[in-house]
Computed example of a mutant assay.
Amino acid sequence: MKITIHYCTQCQWLLRAGWYAQELLSTFGESLEQVALAPSHGGHFEVLITTDAQSEPEVVWERKRDGGFPDIKELKRRVRDRLDPERDLGHIDR
C-alpha cells in the first residue's frame, strides 16, 4: 500500500506534509510500502492511497473537499480503515 501526499509549494506546506508522512510512518510502519511527498501548486493538498499496482489511487483527504487540513487522528483513522479495518489504534480510537 502506498500513500502520496500532494502539497502546494507556493503555500509553503512542505513541513505540514512531511509531518503527516512522519506520523503515518510512525503509526503504520512496515504495513506501508511507501509514503511519498509530491510537490504541487495552486493550494492543492491531497492524501491518496493506492492499495496495489492495478488499482487507481483513492482520495483519503482533499483540503478543499474536506474543509481544510485533517486532524492527525482523523487521517490515521481513514488510512487504517483502508489498510486494516480491524487494527486498534489505541488512544486514537477512544
Rank of each mutant, 00 (worst) to 15 (best):
W19I: 03
T51V: 13
C11E: 08
R77N: 08
Q34W: 03
P85R: 05
G68S: 11
I72L: 12
G90N: 01
D88T: 05
P85E: 12
G68E: 14
W19M: 12
F45Q: 09
T27V: 11
E58C: 06
S31V: 02
I5F: 11
E58W: 03
A21D: 02
K2P: 01
L25W: 05
G67M: 09
I3G: 03
F45D: 00
I72W: 08
L89K: 04
Y7T: 09
E74T: 15
R78G: 10
V35L: 07
A38V: 09
L24W: 02
K73L: 07
D81M: 10
G43R: 09
M1I: 13
W61S: 05
Y7W: 15
D66V: 00
R16A: 09
V59I: 15
P39S: 00
M1F: 07
E33N: 10
D81V: 11
G29C: 05
L25E: 11
E46G: 03
V47Y: 08
S31G: 07
W61T: 00
S31K: 14
L15S: 07
W61F: 10
D84V: 02
G68C: 00
D52G: 14
R77A: 11
E86P: 02
Q12Y: 01
Q34S: 14
T50Q: 15
S31M: 13
K64L: 12
G67C: 04
R63V: 02
K2R: 15
W19V: 04
L37P: 07
R65L: 14
V60K: 06
S40T: 05
K76Q: 15
G18P: 02
S40Q: 07
E58G: 02
R82K: 15
W13H: 09
L83Q: 01
A36T: 08
L89H: 06
G68I: 13
H41C: 05
T50P: 04
P39W: 04
S55H: 13
L48T: 06
E62K: 14
Q22A: 10
C8K: 06
R87A: 15
H6L: 15
W61K: 09
P70M: 13
E56H: 06
A17S: 13
F45C: 06
P85N: 12
L37E: 04
V79Y: 05
G29E: 01
M1N: 00
D84S: 14
D52E: 13
